[in-house]
């Protein structure tokens, strides 16, 4: 099934992508013509989506590290605390799970791709991959090790399987050596992967 020269992608793949783009264009134009969705609404929605980045989650985490009362509210009701911090969480419940020296948390969606997108933006491809979805619940320590996160034997791992209505965010441990740091400075250490739970926050 090889035509004798190398392609970066398979030709069938290119045609299929094209087909998807044509379908998207056709559906979008029909929805515009019927007044179901205007071009303006679509543009604004894409802008809103582009504005959602892991920086939002990082700000929430850094505030929790520096404000114990906020942290308590965040752990009690993640969505409400995010709204308090000026981040919309849409219609979803948000459960914030705290990493401690005794317990590490990892987030996955085994059935599809549910992700705290209002707080972190769109998920990376690997989060939606078959391998991550299949293995995160069965051998989380091995998956974590592939991300360079090797947990001591005494640390328990809790894996959270997201649903359409229930999204999870990991509150990573505050790195050592950051005593007295301001929340904005701390936020720079909070990576997207640390809030999914595949990595710790960055060291200073």
């Amino acid at each position: 099934m090889h035509d004798g020269h190398d392609h970066p992608t398979l030709p069938e793949r290119d045609e299929e992508l094209n087909r998807a783009q044509i379908t998207e264009m056709a559906l979008r134009q029909l929805l515009h013509e019927k007044g179901v969705i205007t071009a303006d609404e679509l543009r604004r929605q894409i802008e809103t989506m582009d504005a959602r980045t892991p920086a939002q989650g990082a700000a929430v985490v850094a505030r929790a590290w520096t404000d114990p009362a906020f942290k308590a509210r965040l752990l009690a009701d993640g969505a409400a605390a995010c709204r308090e911090a000026g981040i919309s969480t849409g219609p979803f419940n948000l459960v914030v799970v705290e990493n401690t020296p005794e317990q590490h948390n990892l987030v996955v969606c085994t059935l599809c791709s549910c992700y705290p997108r209002y707080v972190l933006g769109l998920p990376p491809d690997w989060y939606k991959s078959k391998a991550y979805r299949a293995r995160a619940v069965r051998e989380p320590r091995a998956v974590l090790a592939e991300f360079g996160t090797v947990l001591a034997d005494g640390v328990a791992v809790r894996v959270h399987d997201s649903t359409a209505d229930m999204r999870y965010l990991v509150l990573p441990m505050r790195p050592n050596g950051t005593e007295g740091w301001s929340a904005p400075r701390l936020a720079e250490l909070v990576t997207r992967d640390s809030m999914i739970g595949v990595a710790p926050a960055r060291d200073p």
Partner: peptide, 18 residues
């Protein structure tokens, strides 16, 4: 679509800009 717990290979750390 119900992949949880099935055997699978290494997680390829792919990402692309949408």
């Amino acid at each position: 679509h119900d992949l949880g717990g099935l055997p699978a290979g290494p997680v390829e750390r792919a990402e692309h800009d949408y």
